[in-house]
Structures are given as structure tokens and as C-alpha cells.
Design a protein around this nucleic acid. Structure first.
Lengths: 383, 383
DNA sequence: AACCGTTGTTAAAACAGTTTACCATTTTTG
DNA sequence: CAAAAATGGTAAACTGTTTTAACAACGGTT
């Protein structure tokens, strides 16, 4: 028995907040039953029927529904009352067919086995879902399996009018099919990355700033031999981190060494292996900057189980600030990425783009460093 | 820099498999460009236009699209060729409006802060997404926030024709609004739980079997003082585990003690705290059965940091078998829940229910125990 | 030769809304 | 007080499909 059902959740507020919902759902039941009683067969109540019962035209009901200013107050009330009485709900297939928008947004995830269970994606998704809900949009999720792209289903999303726009999470420059969207001017925003050619709309965290914050911290603590576990060099934002790492060293008068750079594949195990390789290459290393928290955790696990104390011997800094890691031992100093906010922003901008309010989306969100226990002063400087 | 983008993924197969997609998307580009060249303004090509160009009626094109046997081979080919040439894609809003189904299924998650980043939900979701894709269905995700339910949006999902059916993950008997679905005969399947009144369709893992497997293991290892960290007593499947735990003890001639039962709230920290409480109540306890892996991990963390060796002093068994935990130290013995398969089955059954092929869904999937390092023989029995 | 059953196709009627052009009333303006 | 403008509402066209009933054309029976 898995994951906390509502009421046993840590934030019991959401559990309490749920209580009224039961009454609410009862109320709805009552309302629907009333409708059923009054009209014997309320099956399939449509706008025409409402218009007839209210003694107005179909156009009038439609305008009431859309709060058109051309309808007088009295008519509005009369029609609205009938709508409520009959329990009428406009069919959104018909609305979208005749109207301009579907009010649906797709989220595309990469074809990783655990894409749906990922803390990083999950945090962004939460932001997207919350904002989409507020904007009255529904969310469609797709995993961009090779087959899916091969059959052109990503374009079908628009062309068959499933959605108005797409948010793409976890992709990088190698996924060139993303350019198909831009080529057809279909609204699409790349989330937490960008393309080198800058033709795609994007919204991402300021990885340069984040890397700078992490490096400033380590340098101020007196570290000179600072290694880095990177990943996914095909991702521009990932390259930002490596470049900033290197230039920070140079700016501090330190000569970067190729021996200090290892690919950790963004995974737990990759991070552990990277730590092993780094220390075997250069035992002087006293700090490691990791491209994400998972790799940082792997590195810490390797270090602590192989006679290196963290942070006494080696300091470790991560990237992401994913949940449930604040409790790790030692807890992880990491660059906090505003992923929830990023999701919110991405969704907001996408809708603006769909509505034609903006032509181009290119936003960058600031990061900040969260100081915890995995970093400490350079050995030689401690009193 | 988060979660592995495709190509740096551990299963590099999916990365390789992705390569062809780029060519595929290019091909599509080419095809669309051709269409554009041939017809100047291919904007909004619809079935009427295809019919005109092909010299047949609209009905004929529709029947070709739906592979009706009433269309002759020659006509079929002629029309299909025109469809391809014009790059025509049927508008699915119109299709659904006129037809019976939307071909969309909703997944409803509880309003937990990290519902989208949860390993347990994620695994089920993967199964659902894969099967939905194969069945030609799209997936809509909703979080059942209190406000959402209060406004009756869960019913709107059907009534405004957003979806044909709903899968509900992570809910229990306290969420009585779920009964609204059954009351209206809207297709809905409760995933990995059931309701006491048995009025709701469900698909869940065999928690009794799982608990039995875990208990058999511990009893065979010689343990007599076996505690249990449960959670969410309002969940019938969670109760299954507690009941089986108790009856197993009785069957083994052991008198269950209330001191052996603590609520761990399904969380990491809850599990740690529960372990503390248990051992303070009864230091004799030599084994702990936990209602999920998170709590088991928390318990192990507490034990190992407080002078109890796992499994030498205390054995721990979890429930779920979530990924990335096989590498924990010590690795966790746990009851494997077939969550991916559960998702597949749930989706499959929901579609059958939608199509009227079945009246009722009530399926249970078997579990199995995964033996790892967190369990061992009772101290006194070791040689 | 009149009748019947296939076979393949079509016109027209759903499906359920939005939007536009137009038409009466009123109200305001010159 | 007539003309112009504003107000409130409506009929009809439109969105893009599926489905049904009807209908030719044709070969095969009596």
C-alpha cells in the first residue's frame, strides 16, 4: 500500500479541505435528481431545448453562456435560471468545433521508462496542472515514444484538433522533431531547455546563474580542486553549467583540468561511478559540483562508503533541489530550480501564445543556492 | 539539470530507437510541403474538399476512412490516394460530436502535493499510458482538488463530453464523491483499491496474498515478535494487509499485540518514527512488516542509525517494490506489486466497460515476494 | 419480360454549439 | 420632429464529421 491517500498526507490541510467536497457532491446529486423529477426524461439536454423552455432563441442562450454584453440583465437572469434548472452543460466538442479553441494543452514527456514517476518532471507538471486548471484548460499527456513521432502523431495533436498547444519537458537538441512544430507555427514551448538555433519558444531556469552560485560558494569555502559531474552535453542548459563551471575556475585563477570532468548520465549510479573515477584520477579533489541531485546523492553514497567524509573531506553540491532529499544524510547543499514556478509560467505563456497575445516566448527564471550539510570549508583552512 | 534526457538514459535502447524518428519527421515535413506546393492554399482541408477532389460523395470518403466493407476496392484506393495527397486528417472534434465516443480517458489523482512525482502513481500511469496509446485513446490528467470536486467538475468530465471514462488512482472510501460516478452509470474504475459497498468497479493488487507472502517469509525465518507499520485504515486494501498480518500471527500460534501496530502515514518520516515507537514499546521485536516501501526505508534508516543492525537484529519487509530501491543499503525485501500491469489492465477494462462489452469490473492481480538483504533469520536460530 | 436481391454510392439528416448579418424598437441628436 | 445611433434579439449559416434511408445499376431467377 503505497503513497499516502489524502487524509494520511503530511499536509493534512488538503485532507481537511477535502471534507466539504463530500457535501458538495451530495448537493450536485440532489440537483440532478431534481432535474430528473421535473422532466421525466432529461436525457441529452441541449442548447435548443434550453432555448425553447426559456422562450428565447438559441443564439441568446449561447450569448448568455458566453456572458455577451449584448444580452440584457433580465434576459440573462431568465435564461441562466433555466440553465440551472435543467442542469444544462454545454457540449465542449460542439463548442470547440464551431469555436476557435479546444482549451486543451498537451504535455509531452520523453520516452524514459520512469518519466511519469520522476520528481523533476513531477514538480514541473504540478505547476502546469495548477495553472492550466485556473485558466480553464485541460491537460493531455503524451510520451513521445519513437513510434509516436515516426507516425507523425505529434503533429496530429494539432491537426486533428486534440489540443491548442504543447509543452515539451525533458527534451534536448537531439530531438529534432520538435522543429516540426515551429515550422508550422503550432504553439509549442520547450520547458527548461532551449534550442541552439533559437527558433523554438522556451522557458527555462537560469542554469548559468545556478552554476555561478554553486561555484561562488565552493570557492569562498576555500576549495581549489573542484570537479564536476555533468550529463547530457546535447542539452544547451546542461552545457551552460559546464561552461560556467569552467569560466568560474578560470576567473578564480585556477586552471581547469579535463580530469575533473566526468559524465554521470543524470543517474544515481552514474554519480557514484563518477565520484570513484574522479578521486582515482585526482585525490586532491575537495569539492564536486553535480549536474543534478540524483548524481550528487550517488556521489555522496560512494564517498561515505569509501572512507571519504562529506563534507569534511569532500564537499558536494547538487542541482534541482528535489523533495525528500533535505532529509538525506548528510543533507544536500544544492541549487534550487524553481520548477513549480517554471511549470506555471510555461503554461501561462503557452496560452498567451495560443491566443496570439505574444509572438515569441523566451523566459529565464532565477535560481538560488540552498545551503545544507554536504558542503564545508576546505580542510587546510579549518582552524 | 535534472532527469536524464533520452540519450543519456540508462536504457540506451530508447535513445537509439529514437534516431529514426528524426528522419521520419523530416519525411513528414516533405510531404506537407508537397501538399502546399500543389495547392497554393491547403489551409483547412476537410472531408468535403477531399470528396470534391476525388469525385465522390462525402459519405464515401467517410466510409473509406472507417474501412467500411461497402466501399469497392477501386474506390477505396482512389479516395485513399487523394487523402494522402492532400494530407487530410479528420477533425476528431467533429468525429466525436457526431459519433458515440471521444476516445479520451481521464486519470484522476488525489490532491497530494507530489502526486505527479510519485513512484507508485508513476508506475501505474506508465501502464495506463502504454495501453491507452495502443487502444487509440488519449489521456487527460486531473488532480481532484477540493475545489474541483466541489464544483462538480468530475461529472462535467462526462457531461460536457471531455472523456468516455475515468480511472481513479490513490483514493479510498473517504472520497465518497466517487460514488457519483456509479450513481450515473458513468464508466469509472477505481485503481488499486475497492469500496466496501462494492458498487464501484475496481482493479487492485492482491494485498492479502502479498501480506501472506511476507508473513510466511518472516515466520519461516523464525521470527515470533513481528510488528507492523500500517497506514490509511480507511483504505480497504490497506486493511487487508493488517487483517492478514493478524490472522497469520494467530495461525502461527502467536498472540498479536496492539503494541505491535503503529500508523506510519505512508511516509518516510512516518516509518522512522513508527520504528522508534515500536522498539521502545517492545525491544523484543525482531521483524517489521511495513505497508509500503517508503515507510520501510524510513524504518531502516531509524534502525541503522540507532544501533540496530538490519537484518541481523531486526528484519524489515516493505510493500510496493518501487524502483531505485533495490540499490538501497541494505537492499529491501519487499512485496512486489504488479503496478505497471495493473495500469494496463485498468485501462483495458475501462475501455471494455465504455464499449459495453462488460457490465462490471472487479479484478485482482497476484503479488510476489522479492527477497533481498533486509531480512534474515531470527538471531537465536542462527548457528 | 417482369421480379428480386446484391452491390456501391449518395443526399440529407443528425450531432451541438458559435457567429454574423439583419431587423425591430428605443433613445439620442440636430 | 425627423434622422441617426444605440440596444436587444433572432434566423440562418457555419464548424466537420457519421449514419441512415434511398436509389441506380446489374446479374440471376421464375
Amino acid at each position: 500500500m503505497p503513497t499516502p491517500p489524502l487524509n494520511s498526507s503530511p499536509e493534512s490541510k488538503s485532507a481537511d479541505a477535502f471534507a466539504p467536497s463530500r457535501e458538495a457532491s451530495k448537493e450536485i446529486t440532489v440537483r440532478f435528481n431534481n432535474a430528473a423529477v421535473e422532466e421525466k426524461v432529461p436525457e441529452k439536454v441541449n442548447i435548443r431545448e434550453v432555448a425553447r423552455q426559456a422562450g428565447v432563441s438559441v443564439a441568446t442562450v449561447s450569448m448568455v453562456l458566453n456572458a455577451s454584453p449584448r444580452i440584457s440583465r433580465s434576459t440573462h437572469i431568465k435564461v441562466q435560471r433555466m440553465i440551472d434548472k435543467m442542469g444544462y452543460r454545454p457540449n465542449r466538442l460542439a463548442q470547440s468545433l464551431s469555436g476557435r479553441y479546444t482549451q486543451v494543452v498537451a504535455v509531452m514527456l520523453p520516452p524514459l521508462r520512469h518519466a511519469f514517476a520522476d520528481a523533476y518532471f513531477g514538480e514541473i507538471l504540478s505547476g502546469i496542472a495548477d495553472r492550466a486548471g485556473k485558466l480553464g484548460h485541460k491537460l493531455l499527456i503524451e510520451q513521445a515514444k519513437p513510434q509516436f513521432v515516426k507516425e507523425g502523431k505529434h503533429l496530429e495533436l494539432y491537426e486533428r484538433r486534440f489540443v491548442d498547444g504543447v509543452l515539451c519537458l525533458g527534451f534536448n537538441e537531439k530531438h529534432s522533431f520538435l522543429s516540426d512544430f515551429a515550422a508550422r507555427r503550432y504553439p509549442m514551448i520547450l520547458v527548461d531547455n532551449r534550442f541552439g538555433d533559437n527558433l523554438l519558444d522556451y522557458v527555462h531556469c537560469d542554469y548559468r546563474l545556478g552554476a555561478q552560485q554553486a561555484m561562488n560558494c565552493l570557492l569562498q569555502l576555500g576549495h581549489r580542486s573542484i570537479a564536476m559531474v555533468y550529463a547530457a552535453p546535447e542539452s544547451p542548459t546542461a552545457r551552460d553549467v559546464v561552461e560556467t563551471y569552467t569560466s568560474s575556475l578560470v576567473a578564480a585563477g585556477i586552471t581547469p583540468s579535463e580530469h575533473w570532468l566526468v559524465d554521470g548520465c543524470f543517474t544515481d549510479e552514474g554519480g557514484a561511478e563518477a565520484a570513484r573515477v574522479l578521486l582515482s584520477r585526482d585525490p586532491q579533489i575537495s569539492a564536486i559540483l553535480c549536474g543534478n541531485d540524483k548524481m550528487a546523492l550517488g556521489a555522496i553514497r560512494y564517498l561515505t562508503t569509501h572512507g571519504h567524509r562529506v563534507p569534511d573531506d569532500v564537499s558536494v553540491v547538487g542541482f534541482d533541489d528535489i523533495q525528500h532529499l533535505a532529509y538525506a544524510n548528510p543533507s544536500l547543499t544544492t541549487v534550487h530550480l524553481p520548477l513549480y514556478e517554471l511549470g506555471v509560467l510555461a503554461c501561462e505563456k503557452l496560452v498567451e501564445r495560443i491566443r496570439g497575445k505574444v509572438e515569441r516566448v523566451a523566459e529565464v527564471l532565477p535560481t538560488h543556492l540552498v545551503l545544507r550539510e554536504s558542503t564545508g570549508m576546505m580542510r587546510s583552512l579549518r582552524s
